[in-house]
Design a protein around this nucleic acid. Structure first.
Lengths: 229, 229
DNA sequence: ATTAATAAATATACAGTGTTTAGTTATTTA
DNA sequence: TAAATAACTAAACACTGTATATTTATTAAT
């Protein structure tokens, strides 16, 4: 019956491992992530990492959660810089923040939305809280529009029964909102994600269109289509 | 001065390697692609592959070109099944074909649009012909709308000067079209890609929305916004 | 027919990866 | 002081892509 506390030369090794991982990702890209390289940088042996992460995928999951948190923070900050009554302004602000965050941290963006780690599949249950939180900022603005009667939901498809359970689960982490607000938020999310993911992957520029203009145009399409008044 | 012809036990080894690669990708996913595993399946040694592909990335590039070709074929078939005068019908047909192809070959889709191969970056110049061809079907329909005076380009952003050179390059493989048609095609492409990529990555369903309904709604948004008459 | 040239395959090896196992060191509580 | 155990290292395994050298087989010219 003995319970020794943790001990290490490096004060907080768990955080140090993640830091080293991020630096490696930023410098050489997510696919180059290597436990052995991290260990070399920290002057420990590779198996020592297994005291803090059960395997490489667990480390990646932790990084993804951090990335979602960073993304959610930027969404939250963008929203709250605009007065609550200026709903359209808030929508615009988080839309711009979305793209700006992706351009500031392309590797984090790819880590979340791409599949840059060989054989890795994010475990939904672990990632959901931070993922739902980051999406919840957009949902909150859409919900605010709905409550103000300014949400144009004409002809928007009804949510199927089978997905209502998923919605209830989402609310646990994403906060209170009507399901129609979540649905419309998903569509808005898909639109900005469409442009930004093509941009980040380098598939947009050579075809003759600027991401800037296209993105602004698309944000205008969104507000025109879904906001009235 | 001797020029021996190719010789092999397997009739067309180059194609056999690609076939084995596709089977491996379909069974275990793109990141699991392994030259050694391909060699084992074909009962040859791994270095023998280097007689047909300069390295692993060259094989991946060949696979991507094949995937683009397969995608382009499905777009072409979908378009030409609808009479030329029914332009809206053609737009709908290729839109549905886009999503259906992605769902039929999710690994091919991810190979093109994701980044599933560690450290791989597609060489634009090699991929451009097949990529431009596959996009050209959508562009041709948009161009057809433009020529018929049914394209709604009100307030669509002008293309920046610096990208006009890229447009000229694109025309070489994508065919004759006005630059505004390409731009609008890009935006339409981004929209469908936004939904489909989230679907394929498994990020849509858990949050309570059906890809089916959302996609149909979005295709309607597109026709409403860009087609008049 | 013999010989030279060369394509295509193999054998071998190197440096890298994630991970497992066994053993060691250090710390903490009883 | 002694037992318990967390945290680490050392060594090894089974992989990976790829470079080099060598062998085999085929072709073309003499």
């Amino acid at each position: 019956m003995v319970r020794p506390t943790l001990k290490k030369q490096i004060p907080n090794l768990q955080e140090a491992i993640k830091d080293a991982a991020w630096k490696q990702i930023a410098r050489e890209g997510a696919p180059a992530l290597s436990l052995r390289a991290i260990a070399r940088k920290l002057k420990i042996t590779a198996p020592a990492i297994y005291n803090y992460f059960s395997d490489r995928d667990a480390l990646v999951t932790a990084l993804i959660i951090d990335a979602y948190t960073s993304f959610g923070d930027s969404q939250l900050a963008a929203r709250d810089e605009v007065p609550p009554d200026d709903v359209v302004g808030r929508m615009t602000a988080i839309g711009l923040a979305y793209r700006q965050w992706a351009h500031t941290y392309p590797q984090r963006y790819q880590l979340i939305f791409g599949t840059p780690i060989p054989g890795y599949k994010a475990p939904l249950m672990e990632v959901l809280p931070s993922a739902a939180r980051s999406l919840s900022i957009l949902v909150s603005v859409v919900e605010q529009l709905r409550l103000a009667g300014r949400l144009n939901i004409k002809s928007f498809p009804k949510v199927q029964e089978e997905f209502k359970a998923g919605f209830e689960m989402w609310k646990k982490y994403g906060g209170e909102a009507d399901i129609i607000s979540l649905s419309i938020a998903m569509l808005i999310w898909a639109r900005v994600h469409g442009i930004v993911s093509l941009e980040i992957a380098g598939n947009l520029p050579p075809f003759g269109t600027s991401g800037d203009d296209l993105y602004l145009y698309e944000m205008n399409s969104i507000t025109q289509q879904f906001i009235r008044g």
